[in-house]
Simulated assay, not measured.
Amino acid sequence: MTKLAGTALRLTIFVGESDLWHHRPVYTEIVHRAHAAGLGGASVFRGVEGYGASSLIHTQRLLSLSEDLPVAIVIVDAGEKIRAFLPQLDELVREGLVMLDDCEVIRYTERGKDREDRER
Rank of each mutant, 00 (worst) to 15 (best):
A34M: 07
A34L: 11
A34S: 13
A34N: 11
A34Y: 07
A34W: 03
H35S: 05
A36G: 13
A37Y: 07
G38V: 08
G38N: 14
G38A: 10
G38I: 09
L39A: 04
L39H: 03
G40Y: 03
G40T: 12
G40A: 13
G40M: 06
G41C: 11
A42Q: 04
A42H: 04
A42V: 10
S43F: 10
S43L: 12
S43E: 09
F45A: 09
R46Q: 06
R46G: 03
G47L: 03
G47I: 01
G47K: 03
G47Y: 01
G47V: 00
V48L: 13
V48D: 11
V48Y: 14
E49R: 10
G50T: 07
G50K: 04
Y51A: 04
Y51M: 07
Y51I: 01
G52E: 00
G52I: 00
G52W: 00
G52D: 01
G52N: 02
A53C: 09
A53F: 06
A53W: 04
A53S: 14
S54L: 08
S54G: 09
S54W: 02
S54A: 10
S54F: 02
S54M: 05
S55A: 15
S55R: 13
I57E: 05
I57Q: 12
H58M: 12
T59V: 01
T59S: 08
T59C: 04
R61C: 04
L62P: 05
L62W: 06
L62G: 06
L63H: 15
L63Q: 15
L63S: 11
L63N: 14
S64W: 02
L65W: 11
L65P: 10
E67H: 08
E67D: 12
E67N: 09
E67Y: 02
D68M: 03
D68E: 05
D68I: 02
L69I: 09
P70C: 06
P70Q: 09
P70Y: 04
P70L: 08
P70W: 02
V71N: 01
V71T: 01
A72F: 06
A72W: 02
I73A: 05
V74L: 13
V74P: 08
V74F: 05
I75W: 13
V76K: 05
D77Y: 03
D77C: 03
D77E: 03
A78W: 08
A78T: 14
A78I: 14
G79T: 14
G79D: 14
G79S: 12
E80M: 13
K81P: 14
K81W: 11
I82R: 01
I82N: 00
I82G: 00
R83T: 13
R83A: 12
R83P: 08
R83V: 12
R83C: 15
A84S: 13
F85I: 14
L86V: 09
L86G: 10
L86C: 10
P87H: 07
P87C: 10
Q88F: 05
L89C: 04
L89V: 04
D90R: 14
V93M: 15
V93A: 14
R94V: 13
R94G: 11
R94A: 13
E95A: 11
E95L: 15
E95K: 11
G96V: 00
L97H: 03
L97E: 05
L97D: 06
V98P: 01
V98F: 00
M99K: 08
M99L: 12
L100G: 10
L100E: 10
D101K: 08
D101W: 14
D102A: 12
D102H: 13
